[in-house]
Computed example of a mutant assay.
Amino acid sequence: MKIVQIGTGGWGKNHARVLSELGVLSAICDTDAQRSKEFGEKHSVNHYKSLEEMLTSEEFDGAFVVTPTSTHADIAKKLLEAKKHVFVEKPLTYKTEEGEELAKLAEKNKVILTCGYIERFNPAVGVVKNLVKEKKYGELIMLEFHRENRMPLHIKDVGIIYDTSVHDIDTANWLFDEMPNVVFARTGQIKHEHEDFATIMLGYKDNKVAIITSNWITPKRIRKFYAICNDARISSDFITQEIKVEKQEEIENIENEKQEPLLVEIQSFLDAIEGKSKHIVTAQQAVNVSKIAEAALLSSQKGVPIYLDLK
């Protein structure tokens, strides 16, 4: 299998590393000719400055789009039109109508379009998903997510909702196994051009709720989530992948095998291309996350809940 990568910025260097380790990386493309050459030589693959040049010169099966959000729609469209399988780093697109157009194009050309919501592939989230599915501690009633850190230097074109909160929106949808019907959010700006702190409440049927708190203000990196069930509170850390279950009289630590989520995510995409696995974020799920992010921004601007009707 041959996979190409477009974009080698802050997070993209990790994709290139994993794809190279898996032996599938065949070419690199970056508008910064120096970076393209540097990564091409580092991983011993061809390198290009333009997507058009790569499309005419390279034979490949799939592509990773790891570029600024504002460029996703245009790049992904060209790749899908060339009937290539496409992995777009999150969020799929900034405008939901662009995401819907890409989803239709992928379906028409019978290729895979997926999006990089990496926490689904975090082993800790997988364990919690199984505990919830088995109803080991009763029904899942409430989810809480906390993400704190300084703003990543490579993020320029979106605020914290589209860059950070979207991870937890997707994880909440996946753990509840449904889409929310209402969004309420408050956001603000302290140090940055776009919103740099946000609290989002997602309402699901039967009064189930997810509360997502993110900020680029505090210096310490925190990535935690809590799943409140009828009979227990499950807490986990996205970074350490540790899981703890607190019941009325006892605390239980759940053992799980730690893995690099990005490696699991990329391998799942490669397996999907070969027809071995269906564990990927579907294009429609990625479009829905963008719709929810859009609604959260609108809610924060208007100060009212936004009601949704998602597929």
Rank of each mutant, 00 (worst) to 15 (best):
I211T: 13
M54Y: 02
E255W: 09
G138I: 11
S36Q: 05
Y137W: 11
E250I: 09
P68Y: 01
V18P: 03
D231S: 15
L113F: 06
H85I: 04
V287G: 02
E144H: 13
I251Y: 09
A103M: 06
I200K: 00
M151A: 15
H47Q: 08
L175V: 04
C115A: 14
S57W: 05
V245D: 02
E242T: 12
A172V: 00
V245I: 13
E294S: 11
K83T: 13
V18G: 02
L175W: 02
L102C: 04
G138W: 08
T164R: 06
L297F: 07
S277C: 11
V264C: 07
K37E: 15
G9S: 09
K49Q: 13
Y94M: 04
D170K: 03
G40M: 06
H194V: 07
K133L: 15
K302E: 13
R147A: 15
K278N: 15
E21C: 05
L25I: 13
V166E: 03
L51C: 05
K224R: 14
K191A: 13
L79P: 00
F121M: 08
I6N: 00
T240S: 15
Y94S: 02
K247F: 05
G40C: 07
E97V: 05
E107S: 13
E242Q: 13
D74P: 00
I190N: 10
E260V: 10
G159Y: 00
H72N: 02
I190T: 12
E178R: 13
Q189E: 12
I112P: 03
L79A: 03
H47R: 06
T213W: 07
R223L: 13
P91S: 14
L79K: 01
Q5V: 04
K78S: 12
E59K: 12
E193A: 11
